[in-house]
């Protein structure tokens, strides 16, 4: 899952980025409105955590700009502005959720998970797909009642695939959603991780579409 974090505070931004990375998110940090707007249009992010008081261009304007361009990326507004009028403005501009500062990391994570699930039309509270159940706390997966532990990269890869079951996912797409900008990455490593995942959860769950990419999900 790749997250765009738009936060201008020099302390909170990097700190939050680290905290989210610890929970298996690939995070890019934008420190002003112009950058955030440009990055949000790149179609590689699964979610945006948006501060409203950004320099250069306010978060609300950035959000309105995206929505006017039919960019439906899930947006969670994270702001110090807690008046109801501001909340209404946020939702009217097209936000999917609104969290007021100060906040607890757990609450942010819960909201982000819920939002990601909703964006992929998943109703259940646990991320479940094709007989697999993802445990976000221990970053492991439960298959047929048995817990299978995953490495960080495997967890990120599997979570993204489970969020998008039945869809063809290219290597590039997978890489984009697993890593942030600052990480050296090579789409070839995806093959290696897919191989490892197949060993752990069963080869039948991840199929290769030659020349296109991979599809996650039980054969129908």
């Amino acid at each position: 899952m790749r997250i765009l974090l738009a936060e201008d505070d020099p302390a909170l931004g990097p700190e939050l980025k680290t905290a989210l990375a610890k929970h298996g998110y690939a995070v890019d940090l934008a420190v002003n409105g112009i950058d955030a707007q440009a990055l949000g249009e790149e179609d590689i992010y699964d979610l945006v955590v948006l501060d409203l008081g950004l320099p250069d261009k306010s978060g609300l304007d950035v959000l309105r700009h995206w929505r006017s361009k039919k960019n439906n990326i899930p947006v969670l507004i994270l702001t110090a502005r807690s008046a109801w009028q501001e909340r209404v403005d946020g939702f009217e501009a097209g936000a999917d959720d609104y969290l007021c500062k100060p906040f607890h990391t757990e609450e942010l994570l819960v909201r982000m998970t819920a939002l990601l699930r909703r964006a992929n039309q998943q109703i259940s509270s646990q991320l479940e797909s094709s007989g697999l159940s993802l445990d976000e706390n221990s970053q492991s997966v439960i298959k047929d009642g048995a817990e299978v532990s995953l490495t960080g990269t495997e967890y990120r890869l599997l979570r993204y695939m489970m969020h998008n079951p039945g869809r063809v996912l290219s290597k590039l797409q997978l890489v984009e959603h697993m890593y942030d900008d600052g990480t050296e990455n090579d789409s070839n490593v995806v093959e290696a991780y897919i191989k490892m995942l197949r060993k752990k959860i069963g080869a039948e769950l991840i199929k290769t579409k030659r020349g296109q990419g991979y599809v996650f999900g039980e054969p129908t």
Binding site: A11, L12, A19, G53, T79, A80, K101, H104
Partner: peptide
């Protein structure tokens, strides 16, 4: 003031 004080408070909390 709210904006300015809440962000540092968030950092402190964290």
């Amino acid at each position: 003031l709210a904006h300015a004080s809440k962000t540092p408070l968030t950092v402190i909390d964290r």
